[in-house]
Nucleic acid binder design. Structure first.
Length: 807
RNA sequence: GCCGAGGUGGUGAAACUGGUAUACACGAAGGACUUAAAAUCCUUUGGAGUUAAACCUCCGUGCGGGUUCGAGUCCCGCCCUCGGCACCA
């Protein structure tokens, strides 16, 4: 018998599978299609660490099993290659991002092939390829035509030293992560996409897809639909305008029923009210100082409920509560965000904890309007009877809400409305390494889209990847690229120099896999009709609210304009947990806890690596890597090899323990591969091989075992299969069927409890009646001992599960 | 802080809709083989106690309470860890 030598057999079979084209997906095949998708990777300079292949391997197992079950499987791969880290690396080294990207892709591709992942490489795509981003730009133009892309002033983190807009992640304690320079929030014109127009459909259609519950919950919480009312307060200033000419200050509230309890107003420091009434606010300088301070805080800091509230009253202004004409003070406070609701809130300290704390600090009136709590101690947000509220008195919260909304609508003071936590998508980046936004800015015609025949707008070469002094992208410096004729009027105009975020290319890539080389359209409609929706999409939990939602939004838009045949892109979505370093921390270069798959494969082989990653723990939970744990899987592989090399064909094959266990295991794997309970699949395979080791095994049984093992350890499976005399790949075999009779236990061991504590076990066959089983239990020696001198009150029998005697 | 997920032996973990807590594996200890070591194989391995022996008893699934014949699983209140919070991807 020769040795198990993974480094010899693994490349051999990888080459064989590629030559045999076993992993190619066939357009329009008569077989049922199965489109299975993992999030395509960002080709970072470090290559893959052991965390990346976990989802790739899990879905590879699923894909291989489904192929054996007769599906036409598409399992494609590509590169999400635009992005910040590559650009930052380019700035540091002066190398072109394109060159860096190519090199990184080559590394990761080699690593993926080394692991034996059954991707259809003929469909490989790359978001930085002009033939690809042509269509990303095309989609943007369609959004622009439908008024779903617009420009707005938004705050960006601005590093005063690097002169560059920063990602939130690059800001550490209000300092620039790269240079340590000071950061503040500066206003800039940005391209925005109106994802909020789709909020309702993105929420409602969660009901039509098979996502993990936690994913649905997180998406719907992120969309954050709330019902409430918009109420308009009048603002009284020193100019003493008649009431109907006073400034209207609309607020959004989810608790219009508490309107009589509103004792002050709060606006965001950036609210237009302040600019408008500059001359009439007595303490305007302090108010503006406060606004400047707010620019140095993050949203997280501002909205943290634990942190002490800050704010400043706008002296000289009063708001008028429309329900009772009371004049109440107006504050500016940074816990109110300009971007949420109307940027202003009515404060009801008696019935909102944040308002309560603020009121205590500034010594403001706390007026109870819903009975039920003790507002001397804390705010009361629960239900109760309305008090101090004139015509609402005596009602409970819900009827009071209905009544006040009706009243507001009749008087023209407000209306019922919904509000979303979801905000529009900031789509511009003042960066080089992204898709140029295909818009021409003409002083006469405004924003003019680039004509479709002129797509793609190629990303030009630049000398320097640094943003310009005024914060424009490096593209702004390339004059012969920036200066163009306006497509509308033919006069001088300039290109938009902002680029798209990395989310753009990844919002539609799964469509391109269906038809990766089409140069007429983003993908042929018939092919999309055949392949979409994606049957199974797996990705990280960390992409639940951004990437997953963005791509659902784009897909719905493409559906509306007739480009794609389904309203939802992904029929099913699952999530994997991260693999952490051995120290239990997230793997990162800076922590120095990165484990490289190259090293693991070199020492133990790809199959051991794959099976270990599946065995470590539940697929959807984070798990630390353990170098020692890998050893156990290598021993398992060695055992399979050893048994496969000395099969005992004198062994009979009927109805003995091994056969029963085999059928049980086939059943378990058939079910649990589908639920991605892959750790218990591996353990079931181990239990079976341990049984073979004890009892011996013939070729017939072993071949069945090999078939269910091979999706996990494809190289070992193929090697032993062909060694046993087969000429064709094991992956062309049918997935084995199990015999339901053999997969069942003939005799069951049923635990007997007394008052819920397990005391003994009895053996029960299927044909026994409940009466017989109870008598059997009562006759048991142990039970007798416990029952001595006691009265049996009740016997509970759950068939096949448990028998409990209550005394 | 807000939203989401999780906490079980020395370690990674298993336990299907409330029904035998700790499967499988790592580590550790002891033994076999060997001149020896590695590899391999066998045995033991949650804690405490009683015992000639455990096939006996008690305690045990982050903490405190509750529901139930029965709770790792359900409910209430806490603590801790992880993911996300919109320009990392």
């Amino acid at each position: 018998m020769n040795e198990y030598n993974p480094s010899e057999i693994e490349p051999k079979w990888q080459k064989y599978w590629e030559e045999q084209e076993l992993n190619k997906a066939e357009d329009f095949s008569k077989k049922p299609k199965f489109y299975c998708l993992i999030e395509f990777p960002y080709p970072s300079g470090e290559g893959l660490h052991v965390g990346h292949p976990r989802p790739y391997t899990a879905l590879d197992i699923l894909a291989r099993k489904r192929r054996m079950q007769g599906f036409n499987v598409m399992y494609p791969i590509g590169w999400d290659a635009f992005g910040l880290p590559t650009e930052n690396y380019a700035i540091k080294t002066g190398k072109h991002p394109k060159i860096i990207t190519e090199k990184n892709i080559a590394t990761i591709k080699r690593q993926m092939k080394m692991i034996g992942l059954s991707f259809d490489w003929s469909r490989e795509i790359n978001t930085t390829d002009p033939k690809y981003y042509k269509w990303t730009q095309w989609i943007f133009l369609q959004l622009f035509h439908k008024n779903l892309a617009y420009k707005a002033k938004m705050d960006v983190n601005w590093c005063t030293k690097c002169n560059v807009g920063l990602a939130n992640e690059e800001v550490v304690q209000n300092l620039c992560e790269r240079c340590g320079g000071e950061v503040y929030r500066r206003e800039r014109e940005q391209w925005m996409l109106k994802i909020t127009d789709y909020a309702d459909r993105l929420l409602a259609d969660l009901g039509t897809v098979d996502y993990l519950e936690k994913i649905k919950k997180q998406q719907s919480d992120w969309i954050g639909k709330s019902y409430g009312a918009q109420v308009v307060f009048k603002v009284k200033s020193k100019t003493m305008l008649p009431k109907e000419h006073m400034y209207d200050l609309p607020v959004y509230t989810t608790r219009p029923d508490t309107l009589f309890g509103c004792t002050y107003m709060v606006v965001a420091p950036e609210h237009e009210l302040i600019e408008k009434f500059k001359d009439q606010i007595d303490n305007i300088n302090d108010v503006l100082d406060y606004r400047d301070q707010a620019k140095h805080k993050t949203e997280l800091e501002r909205t943290n409920l634990e942190k002490a509230k800050t704010g400043i009253e706008l002296h000289g202004l009063k708001a008028i509560n429309p329900v009772n004409d009371e004049e109440i003070p107006i504050f500016s406070a940074d816990y109110v965000l300009a971007t949420y609701g109307t940027g202003a809130v009515m404060a009801v300290p008696a019935h909102d904890q944040r308002d309560y704390e603020f009121a205590k600090k500034f010594d403001l009136l706390v007026k109870e309007v819903v009975a039920g709590g003790n507002i001397k101690k804390e705010s009361w947000i629960g239900d109760g009877t309305l008090v101090n509220s004139e015509f609402l008195n005596g009602l409970n919260v819900q009827p009071a809400t209905d009544k006040i909304i009706e009243w507001l609508e009749n008087k023209g003071f407000g209306f019922q409305t919904v509000n979303y936590h979801l905000r529009d998508w900031i789509f511009s980046r003042q960066r080089y390494w992204g898709e140029p936004i295909p818009i021409i800015i003409c002083p006469r015609c405004g924003y003019v889209p680039v004509e479709e025949k002129n797509l793609p707008v190629l990303l030009p070469e630049v000398e320097n990847y640094q943003t310009t002094e005024n914060g424009d992208s490096p593209l702004a410096l390339i004059e012969d690229w920036v200066n163009v004729e306006c497509p509308k009027c033919g006069e001088e105009a300039k290109r938009e120099t902002d680029t798209m975020p990395q989310w753009a290319g990844s919002s539609w890539y799964f469509l391109r896999y269906c038809d990766p080389k089409n140069d007429k359209i983003l993908a042929d409609k018939k092919k999309l009709k055949y392949w979409t929706p994606v049957d199974w999409y797996n990705g990280g939990m960390e992409h639940t609210t951004l990437h997953l939602l963005y791509s659902r939004f784009w897909h719905k838009f493409l559906y509306d304009i007739g480009v794609v045949p389904t309203a939802e892109p992904y029929a099913k979505r699952t999530s994997h947990g991260l693999i952490l370093g051995e120290d239990g921390e997230k793997m990162s270069k800076s922590r120095g806890n990165v484990v490289n798959p190259d090293d693991v494969v070199k020492e133990y082989g790809a199959d051991t690596f794959r099976v270990y990653e599946m065995f470590m723990g539940p697929f959807d939970q984070p798990t630390p890597w353990s170098t020692q744990g890998v050893v156990g899987i290598k021993r398992f592989m060695d055992k399979v090899w050893a048994i496969g090399n000395k099969l005992d064909n004198k062994k009979r094959t009927n109805n003995d323990e091994e056969i029963r266990l085999l059928h049980k295991t086939i059943k378990q794997l058939a079910e649990q591969i589908e639920t991605l309970d892959l750790n218990t699949c591996v353990s079931a395979l181990m239990i079976l091989i341990n049984k073979f080791q004890d009892k011996g095994c013939n070729q017939e049984i072993f071949e069945q075992f090999l078939k269910i093992l091979s999706p996990f350890a494809p190289h070992l499976g193929e090697e032993l299969w062909q060694k046993l005399g087969h000429k064709k790949s094991i992956f062309l075999e049918k997935w084995p069927e199990y015999d339901p009779e053999l997969a069942k236990d003939a005799v069951k061991e049923v635990p007997v409890q007394i008052n819920g504590k397990m005391r003994c076990k009895i053996l029960v066959t299927e044909d026994m009646s409940e009466e017989e089983i109870k008598n059997l239990a009562l006759a048991d020696e142990h039970v007798k001992k416990w029952l001595e001198g006691k009265e049996v009150k009740k016997i509970i029998y759950v068939p096949g599960k448990i028998l409990n005697i209550v005394i």
